[in-house]
Amino acid sequence: MKKPAHNSIKLWAVLVWLLVWQGGSMLLAHRLPHAHLLLPSPLSAFESLVGLCATAAFWKTILWSTVRIFGGFLAACAAASLLAVPAYRFRPFRELLAPAVAAVKSVPVASFIILALVWLRSTQLSFFISFLMVFPPVYLGVLTGIGQTDEKLLEMARVFHVPFFRQVRYLYLPAVAPHFRSAVSLGLGLCWKSGIAAEVIGLPDGSMGERLYMAKVYYMTDELFAWTAVIIGVSVLFERLFLRLTDALLAKAGGIHADRTS
């Protein structure tokens, strides 16, 4: 039986919220001069977005931020997956990493951004922050998945002298896949939020965060909304693409359907 989708977004609900936004902006415009500086209408935000799309700088800005934020995400996925294996195998190594992972999870992202600004150039900031935010959930997810691999099947494989890589493909990968997938889904949301926050604070030239900040400084509120919409769009697009790619790779590796077991 198909599970009810509790968080699916319906078009009618989006339209209702757009109407609320429109109503709010009209109400303000009625009462205040220059109300568009406080809350532009959805239409003016959309016009601003269309205007931005027509410029080469807009696409360059998206590329600039995407390379760094998504690069940090990919690096974190790779490092977390690689470190989770020895961490599971060797308890002292796991114990060594535990405080660092707990600290990264609980320290406010703004503290890391400001601290990282002392150590790094602003152009490296969003990569680093994205890496830091994604590492803990992916590391803990892979670690949990390895720990949940069926001990009895592992024993069977040991008795039958099954080579290690076949064990990884058919025993470990199916156990890790659902945890990895949900960690990646969480990480993709986190990396965009924290990466853009880092750019707004660090203001590297040509980044989406810088454009957001400038829109705020010059009261180009419609452009602020347009850039926010772009960030949401890019984040959702990357989440969909990456999760599909992950599912396809896992299915190819061992006939595993991560979403079926999650």
Binding site: K152, L153, E155, M156, A157, F160, V162, P163, R166, Y170, L171, P174, G255, I256
Partner: peptide
């Protein structure tokens, strides 16, 4: 216990253990 890989078919299970 049978200790078979539930997602695989019979031949795949044999190939997993025996190679």
């Amino acid at each position: 216990e049978d200790r078979l890989l539930e997602d695989l078919n019979a031949t795949e299970n044999l190939r997993f253990a025996i190679g």
